[in-house]
Nucleic acid binder design. Structure first.
Lengths: 195, 195
DNA sequence: CCTTTTGCTTGACACAGTGTAAATTGACGG
DNA sequence: CCGTCAATTTACACTGTGTCAAGCAAAAGG
């Protein structure tokens, strides 16, 4: 069956990316690891960008993305929602990070990769907006911020390069990252003292 | 004089990068704009990475980097130093951003580019550390943070991709960026209420 | 049982962009 | 006048993506 080979290619790509941290993985490497010819890869995916995008979807499914988002969706209080969303992100990012990095690296040269990545960032921003809105609804958003500005800022705090800098360059563990970014976000956005 | 051609190449590279936002500038483009052959560029710079690194130094000199850093170095209070440093960074980043972006883009493929960029990020972190230390010396660093952790976080807030996201994608002006990041940093790090 | 389709193979090639190498010209200085 | 230096032209090697064409084997279907 065709989807068998297709899956092997996706797994091979995901494996190599995880192994290399997201850089320097060529179509020929993926083909070799999947046990097929380089051209066979192009029978399933027209371009490298398309393959990488398919890998992200594949990983999302394997991880059960929706289920992972449940806790933050279920949170009643804004602050709780914000904490849950950061916790989700801190656990999710390490998993897709290698593919994300590969996708980011080809943003300049490939419009399709760029668009796909923008889409994911837009989804991330939706989550941020929901958390900020919930905080605002509780009357807990600090009055220095509008919901829009706070959303932008929160979203920027969760960006991939920030995570890379803190965990990979500065050596923070996932737990460190989650705890500290939660603290930072709540100090920044929650109106402490007066509302 | 040799340095004449060399300067023309640096100017040409800086101009093209500024024009394109940092992507898609080839050695041949730079050569053409400088009015020399592509090979002449290689007589002055062994590799593309070396040229880009030289461009950053060239821009730093043209801007008077040291003078721009004076206000933050001169600040007495920690909070003032932090504000001044963010203001400096907000004004400086738009100027070197195109080269920075080009340099970042080749980090995966070129070790020299990677090292050069790491060096600049280390310098940025020094500035962050100094601001945090000053805040701490005033007894104003919020007790949830150690100086080290606060430095990491402050440094990540000032990273280039965050600036890109906020100004280029979300449309913040330089003034917006400076004001809001100042607010965010002070809310995050300054121990309000009790010390 | 024969034919067609499907999935993959091999091999060759075009293209872009970086970097290297060799032979040549022109100018300037001792 | 000679040597040297800057720069030129032309040609080529290398890497990686993507394309094209011909062929082969096994499954599907009449």
């Amino acid at each position: 069956m065709s989807s068998d080979t297709r899956s092997r290619i996706l797994e091979a790509a995901a494996g190599l990316l995880a192994q290399s941290g997201g850089a320097g993985v060529r179509m020929s490497d993926i083909a070799r690891r999947a046990g097929v010819s380089r051209q066979a890869v192009y029978l399933h995916f027209d371009t490298r960008a398309e393959l990488l995008i398919a890998v992200t979807r594949h990983i999302d499914e394997a991880l059960g993305l929706d289920a992972r988002l449940e806790p933050s969706r279920a949170a009643r209080k804004g602050a709780e929602r914000m904490r849950a969303y950061i916790a989700f992100w801190g656990a999710y990012l390490p998993e897709i990070h290698p593919v994300a990095r590969a996708l980011i690296a080809m943003q300049d040269s490939d419009p399709a990769a760029s668009e796909a990545w923008d889409g994911r960032m837009a989804a991330l921003r939706e989550g941020c907006a929901a958390a900020i809105a919930a905080l605002d609804a509780d009357g807990e958003l600090a009055p220095v911020w509008t919901a829009d500005i706070a959303t932008d800022l929160f979203w920027s705090m969760l960006s991939v390069p920030v995570w890379e800098a803190l965990t990979q360059q500065r050596g923070w563990s996932t737990e460190d990252y989650v705890d500290r970014v939660q603290t930072q976000a709540l100090r920044t956005f929650r109106g402490r003292g007066k509302g």
